[in-house]
């Protein structure tokens, strides 16, 4: 341990604002990237499932599935 107390650790020998802001920025962006990737994946899977449910529903009713560009649907964007 390079510090004698927890207060010492947070003070960083007077360099607290520099050390902690650099670290906070880094960890925030890393965590943000993970959360964004997870959200992106979940949303895509939800969209695919919604579409597959609707297609099955239409198939069961003996109708052709509606155009896939309906609101909230998956698109090539």
């Amino acid at each position: 341990m390079a510090f004698s107390s927890l207060n010492d650790f947070f003070a960083m020998g007077g360099h607290a604002p520099y050390v902690w802001s650099a670290w906070a920025m880094t960890l925030t962006l890393l965590l943000g990237s993970v959360l964004h990737a997870r959200h992106e994946r979940r949303q895509l899977i939800r969209q695919l499932q919604r579409r597959s449910r609707r297609e099955r529903h239409h198939a069961a009713q003996g109708r052709a599935p509606r155009s896939r560009s309906r609101a909230g649907d998956i698109d090539d964007t």
Binding site: M1, A2, M12, G13, G14, V19
Partner: peptide, 13 residues
Amino acid sequence: LAFAPADYQQGNS
């Protein structure tokens, strides 16, 4: 952050 020794010139920065 906690265990590496401080730099002799730059300290903890």
